[in-house]
Design a protein around this nucleic acid. Structure first.
Lengths: 147, 147
DNA sequence: TCCGTGAGTTGTACTGTGCAACCAGGAGAA
DNA sequence: TTCTCCTGGTTGCACAGTACAACTCACGGA
């Protein structure tokens, strides 16, 4: 059955991609790990959020997020603002430096992808993008895992 | 421009996938890390190879591969056979147990992907698979990185 | 007022990884 | 032959990322 074979190919290729991603992420942007990058991106997108939200969103342990956040703060890429309503909460915000680094790394990544996707017909690009969105939007097996 | 937006989406979604992959891989198949899985898969596919080949193929340090291999051997999933021609070389082979575990994990992963892709029209599946293959086949920036 | 709950930190341990130093076997040059 | 260089592999060390468990502090309801 052709569909079965396609599923197998998708499985293999996605795995291949995942295996490479972290390694090359480290090499391409030593200034920001893949995790840091996604955390910063999330903060930018949401215009600030709590560490707990990050942990839930990325299915990471809160201790892990705590340490990542601490590192990002040490690097002056984010800042903590105490929530005035609930003193347990610290709202995380990008600093200007964080915004700048994020933009730069994003641009680097974009460039890499653009290069990689150069020559693809626009129709294929949009379809590929759509497939990926549809794939990632699926939320089964692990609850609270989302992107 | 629409193509630019598609590239951005692809970048974002592939990143999302990569970020999740390791975490869920660990959760879904505690018996085999993503790396171990790919190494075993490679051994099966090639019907045995050297540690150096694995290192080159996956752009890993030889020390990393050495340790992974040692762990897989301890777990009786692979065995080393001394090359009779060159005594520096150990050719790695799957054991029966390794083949069995690999098949089982592969089946689990397949099932997860099948579930995730259930309901996709066959045409979309084959096109998606094709796009991924085309994407991963691109070999720029990092030489000797392949899947 | 007290107890349970939620946010966040810290101690500990483990995995995966790379780099550098090392050992051992092979291959060619003096 | 012997010396030197290369190659395959291991080991010591360091570090990032992660989880789990125990903790502190703040909130909120009984």
């Amino acid at each position: 059955m052709r569909a079965d074979q396609a599923v197998e190919t998708i499985q293999r290729e996605m795995t291949t991609f995942a295996r490479r991603a972290r390694a090359s992420a480290g090499r391409l942007h030593p200034e920001l790990s893949l995790v840091s990058y996604t955390l910063l991106g999330h903060l930018e997108e949401r215009d600030g959020c709590r560490a707990t939200d990050l942990a839930a969103h990325y299915a990471l342990d809160k201790s892990t997020v705590s340490r990542q956040v601490a590192a990002l703060e040490r690097a002056d890429l984010i800042e903590r603002r105490l929530d005035t309503e609930d003193h347990r909460v610290q709202v995380l915000h990008l600093t200007d430096a964080g915004r700048r680094i994020l933009a730069q790394v994003t641009e680097n990544r974009q460039a890499a992808f653009r290069e990689r996707l150069a020559g693809w017909p626009e129709e294929d690009l949009t379809r590929f993008a759509g497939y990926l969105e549809r794939y990632n939007a699926w939320s089964g097996e692990v609850p609270a895992e989302e992107g």
